[in-house]
């Protein structure tokens, strides 16, 4: 890659590399489309996603007025998929942001200050990790009450250790570097060192991890919906559609195949993008 005439920032270089990764580009485009559809749901959806019609239940794909068929209450599947994507993506990204927020704070503190604080935090993280993830989520939802917000909160709590450990690891290796040591010696406040110097240098593993994690969160939320602990009716959400549709998998497979395929595509796109980002941000992996 030598021979670049104009000096570029590392970010620009990474973007340049990312742009050449066809899979990552495809993933990013798919995600962009999904996000666009979600944002435009009120305009795009042909019908009210909660409008029932018991006389037109389980209509097959291509029925007039129901381009992708209708569900167990005669609601338009296309409209529900469009609105459901909005909810599912929101849950996925929302849960990651919450988990990352908490994870980054405790991970930074543990790694930067070390000592007893590190021990205590890491023991707590061990406790969370030793807990079977979905069960912890179920127990949390059981005590907070079911619903989309609580389900999101539960899966984000489950996700905290993941981020805390990533950040702590990065901080441990950064802490001894010269520029951090220098900042400390000249007496810069800890908060400033953490936010100005430490955090920006942990960002790339964090971005990669978060991209891959959004998919996991979407699937975990679907799992909670399967257990009846996710979105409440009549809200359209992919996981709810999928788990409600499973009762009709033989007479009307499209009820569960369509939302299942939607989840699959989005998670796949996130993984392509995440892989691409990892390669782009970590040039050692490229030949």
């Amino acid at each position: 890659m030598g021979g670049a005439v104009i000096a570029r920032s590392p970010t620009q270089e990474a973007l340049q590399r990312l742009r050449r990764d066809r899979m990552a580009v495809a993933g990013a485009m798919l995600l962009f489309c999904a996000a666009l559809v979600s944002v435009l749901a009120p305009v795009l959806a042909p019908q009210d996603p909660t409008q029932t019609n018991l006389a037109q239940r389980l209509a097959p794909i291509g029925t007039p007025g129901y381009p992708l068929g209708s569900d167990e209450l005669g609601r338009d599947i296309l409209s529900r998929l469009i609105w459901g994507g909005r909810v599912s993506l929101l849950v996925g990204f929302g849960a990651v942001i919450v988990a990352m927020g908490f994870g980054v704070i405790v991970g930074l503190m543990a790694g930067y200050f070390g000592g007893w604080l590190d021990s205590v935090i890491m023991r707590l993280i061990d406790v969370l990790m030793a807990f079977p993830a979905i069960l912890l989520a179920i127990a949390i939802v059981a005590s907070l009450g079911p619903g989309l917000r609580n389900a999101m909160l539960a899966i984000s709590i489950v996700g905290i250790p993941y981020y805390a450990r990533i950040i702590r690891g990065s901080v441990l290796s950064l802490r001894e570097l010269e520029f951090i040591q220098a900042a400390r010696i000249i007496g810069a406040p800890d908060l400033r060192i953490l936010t100005r110097h430490v955090l920006p240098n942990c960002l790339s593993p964090l971005i990669v991890a978060a991209t891959l994690d959004v998919g996991w969160m979407i699937m975990a939320a679907a799992g909670l919906s399967f257990l009846g602990l996710g979105a409440q009716p009549p809200t359209a959400e992919w996981g709810v559609m999928l788990s409600a549709g499973r009762q009709f998998i033989r007479i009307a497979p499209h009820l569960s195949v369509l939302p299942g395929a939607a989840i699959l595509l989005v998670v796949l796109a996130l993984n392509f993008l995440g892989d691409g980002l990892r390669d782009a941000l970590d040039p050692r992996l490229r030949q």
Partner: peptide, 21 residues
């Protein structure tokens, strides 16, 4: 790699029901 990713991205209970049938 795409195949394993597809496996990874499939909601697990849905896959189970399909395999059963």
């Amino acid at each position: 790699m795409v195949l394993v990713l597809i496996g990874f991205s499939t909601p697990i209970f849905w896959l189970g029901i399909i395999l059963q049938i």
